[in-house]
Amino acid sequence: MSEITVELTVNRRARTATVPARTTLADLLRDSFGLTGTHLGCEQGVCGACTVLLDELPVRACLTLAASCQGSEVVTIEGLDGPDAERIRAAFSREGALQCGFCTPGMVLSCYELARRRQVLTRDEACMAMSGNICRCTGYNGIIRAVRSAIAEGIESES
């Protein structure tokens, strides 16, 4: 039982893999499925670079066992699409919200959940909401501008 077979949906595609039970969701995505957009920074839940959507909620892929994802739906940065994702990508580009880019997949996925809520956030609230994602280039001003801009455009798109 130290090997497990896990069946899940990744970026809307049904996938199956047999891996050691100790495999994290992050390693499953990167090593078994070649989805290397999910980045591994700290592997202890602090940096947020490995954030993915699990059944529509952001989670740390480094603190989630692949085995626990049996039957779940995972969306990684590679599979994130739709109007909200497009607005976030455009805002990140326009506002200079990425420098080296290592933290960007996690930042974009955390931002996506915020944008989907359709709630205006003050600058302080946006900072708090994004505080689980670390940018080692310290490019936070651009990131927060992009997050607030993408949220505002999402709300505007429905009014």
């Binding site: 039982m1 130290s2 497990i4 050691p20 100790r22 994290t24 390693d27 592997e43 085995a67 626990s68």
Partner: peptide
């Protein structure tokens, strides 16, 4: 930074 081996059970 990877867990050591274990057997996994999902009751």
């Amino acid at each position: 930074m990877k867990p050591a081996e274990f057997a996994y059970h999902r009751p």
